[in-house]
Amino acid sequence: MKFKAFLTDSGISLLEKRFLPALDKLGKLCHLYFTRDHFILLHNLLSGDGIQAIAQFRTAVLFDDYRISSQNDDRIAFSVDISLLLRAVRSSAAVWTGDGGSTDSSDHRLQIKLVKKLPANSTQPMPFLSFETKGHRSAVIQDVPISKPLSRSLVLELQTALDAAQSLPATLVQAPDMHKLQGFVDRMRNLGDSLNVTISKYGGIHLQISTTLLTLGAEFQNLLVIGDRAHQAPNDQSLSAQARLESALVKGDAQSVQVSVKHFAKSLHCHLVKPDCTFYGIGDLGSCLTVIFQFFVPGSRQTDKSISFHCRLPVQNSGAD
């Protein structure tokens, strides 16, 4: 089992400034999964509860000179403490740029590789992901402890979970202004634990907290819809937000799920990845709330297919049927 690659400039900045900080907010552990063509960061895919997050990159987006070999069809997966990984990438990047590395990237490169080493006070060699930075004046090696590589069956399980998580909701609605949404959710989170999220084919997102003492909600309308859409009856506009919600649910033009407010607030942290667009949708039969982050090819409005990132929020119990 061998893995070795050089991180590119853009790869370092994607991981250091965007993806690792976002995943760090979601939780402590993360699976790293390398295949011949892809590098995938997976959060919570095997454990089942909590938010799941999947960030997938074509290897060329992050790496140069990417070499992988394993008896399991050249696939390697292991888990790592995401904050340690982030620290290693951060300090490697600092050594590298501090040493004038970015001026001539052919000489000064950041290599990562899988190694087995004998840690101090131990007789058992342990696996590490090793970061090796060579600058003009210094070379720094950092070893990030990782789990034992996953067994063939676990890798298969991971791949199956990954494939299952790829299905797209029938209707996706573009998220409203993120600052507004984040501010709203931050302030409403004291008021309840469960959040009803309704997505309508008219391009509406409706968030509602409901307790015995209070019902509080926010309705965002006229958002971009991808997939199944429908036209709202013109007189719906004169109704109250709650009446519109009822009417859309009755007509089958909207679907509703209940998620944890905490999970929803956490999923908003994923905006640290600085996506160009964000979409919300509800999985088949109300199985989960899916958040899809879209990235454009720099300087264009075309989807960058080499990067994908999405989250799935578990449903507490199915909302309105």
């Binding site: 409203p176 507004k180 019902t215 909600g217 926010a218 309705e219 309308q221 937000a241 709650q242």
Partner: peptide
């Protein structure tokens, strides 16, 4: 309670 200043977003609350 109901927000009144935006057409595309509406916040509302019903307090017992």
């Amino acid at each position: 309670l109901k927000s009144t200043d935006s057409l595309d977003a509406c916040i509302y609350a019903e307090i017992r």
